[in-house]
C-alpha cells in the first residue's frame, strides 16, 4: 500500500494588533501575533505538529520580534 505523507509549515495568525509602524521595514502595516507551526501529515491528516516560533508578524516583512511562550501568552491576554 502506498502511504502518502508529507510535511509543511503553516502560519497561524492569532491576534490582529492593528496597523502599526514596523521597525524592520519602516512601513505602516497590519501587525499580528502569530505562530509558525510545523506539521507532519499522513494521507492529509496531521499526525504531529510543533510550534517552531511565536512572534509579532508584519504583513509586509514577516517576523519582526520573536517571543518566548510566556511573553506570547502574556501578550495574547493583554488584548
Amino acid at each position: 500500500m502506498v502511504i502518502v505523507y508529507g510535511w509543511k509549515t503553516n502560519i497561524k495568525k492569532e491576534k490582529h494588533l492593528g496597523k502599526k509602524h514596523c521597525t524592520n521595514c519602516s512601513h505602516d502595516e497590519d501587525m499580528f501575533l502569530a505562530k509558525e507551526i510545523f506539521k507532519l501529515h499522513i494521507f492529509g491528516i496531521p499526525i504531529f505538529w510543533k510550534t517552531k516560533r511565536r512572534f509579532v508578524m508584519c504583513s509586509n516583512c514577516g517576523v519582526v520580534e520573536e517571543l518566548n511562550k510566556a511573553d506570547y501568552t502574556e501578550r495574547l491576554k493583554e488584548l
Partner: peptide, 15 residues
Amino acid sequence: INVYPSNMIDGVYQT
C-alpha cells in the same frame, strides 16, 4: 531607498 530582512514575498510567508 529601503533595505530590510524579510521572510514574506508578495504577502506570502516563507521559511
